[in-house]
Simulated scan of single mutants.
Amino acid sequence: MDGILPLWKERGMTSHDCVFKVRKILHMKKVGHTGTLDPNVDGVLPICLGSGTKLVELLMDKTKVYTGEITFGFATTTEDLDGEIVTEQTIENAIPDETIQEAMQQLTGHIVQIPPMFSAIKVNGKRLYEYAREGIEVERPEHPVYVDAFEMASASSLIDGRQSFQFKVVCGKGTYVRTLASDLGQALGVPATMTSLTRAASTPFKQEDCLTLDQLREAVENDDFSWLVSIEESLSAYPQWHVPSSETMLHKLIDNGSVLDLSVLPSELQAQLPVTVFLDDKIKALYDLHPSKDGKIKPTKMF
Rank of each mutant, 00 (worst) to 15 (best):
Gly109Asn: 11
Pro299Val: 00
Gly189Gln: 02
Asp82Ile: 02
Ser15Gly: 14
Phe225Ile: 12
Glu232Pro: 07
Lys206Trp: 00
Pro46Tyr: 12
Ala103Glu: 05
His33Glu: 03
His33Lys: 14
Leu55Cys: 08
Glu139Val: 14
Lys301Pro: 04
Val123Met: 01
Asp61Ile: 13
Glu233Tyr: 00
Ile254Pro: 08
Ser156Ala: 01
Leu197Glu: 03
Phe118Cys: 10
Met13Lys: 14
Leu228Ile: 12
Leu45Glu: 00
Ala201Ser: 15
Cys171Met: 09
Leu260Tyr: 02
Arg11Phe: 10
Asp42Glu: 09
Thr300Lys: 14
Lys54Val: 09
Ile297Arg: 10
Val275Arg: 02
Val19Thr: 10
Val275Ala: 06
His290Pro: 01
Thr108Pro: 04
His16Ser: 14
Glu84Ala: 12
Asp209Ala: 03
Lys64Ile: 01
Glu10Gly: 15
Asp80Asn: 10
Phe225Cys: 13
Ala153Lys: 13
Leu228His: 02
Gln106Leu: 06
Lys30Asn: 14
Gln270Asp: 06
Ser156Pro: 02
Met117Pro: 05
Leu235Arg: 13
Thr195Gln: 05
Gln186His: 11
Leu37Pro: 06
Asp82Asn: 08
Ile111Cys: 11
Gln270Cys: 14
Phe150Arg: 00
Ile70Gly: 06
Ala155Gly: 11
Pro141Ser: 01
Leu197Met: 05
Ala201Glu: 15
Leu228Tyr: 09
Leu273Phe: 01
Phe167Arg: 02
Glu92Trp: 00
Ala181Trp: 00
Leu55Phe: 06
Leu7Asn: 02
Lys206Glu: 06
Val243Met: 10
Val145Gly: 10
Asp2Gln: 14
Cys210Tyr: 01
Gly125Pro: 06
Asp214His: 02
Glu92Ile: 01
Ala120Lys: 12
Met104Phe: 07
Val190Lys: 01
Met28Trp: 05
Arg162Tyr: 11
Leu211Gln: 00
Lys64Tyr: 09
Gln272Arg: 15
Lys284Gln: 11
Phe205Tyr: 15
Gly172Asp: 10
Val275Ser: 03
Ile136Thr: 15
Ser196Gln: 12
Lys9Cys: 02
Pro96Ala: 05
Leu26Ser: 10
Ser292Cys: 09
His33Thr: 15
Gly35Lys: 11
Pro244Ser: 08
Gln89Val: 15
Arg133Leu: 13
Asp38Tyr: 07
Leu7Tyr: 00
Pro274Ala: 14
Lys301Ala: 09
Lys206Cys: 04
Arg217His: 15
Arg217Ala: 15
Val145Asn: 10
Ala187Val: 07
Val145Lys: 11
Val220Asp: 05
Pro96Glu: 06
Trp241Ile: 11
Tyr131Pro: 08
Val177Asn: 07
Lys252Ser: 13
Asp38Gly: 04
Gln215Gly: 01
Ser258Tyr: 10
Thr195Leu: 13
Val31Gln: 09
Lys64Ala: 07
Lys296Cys: 03
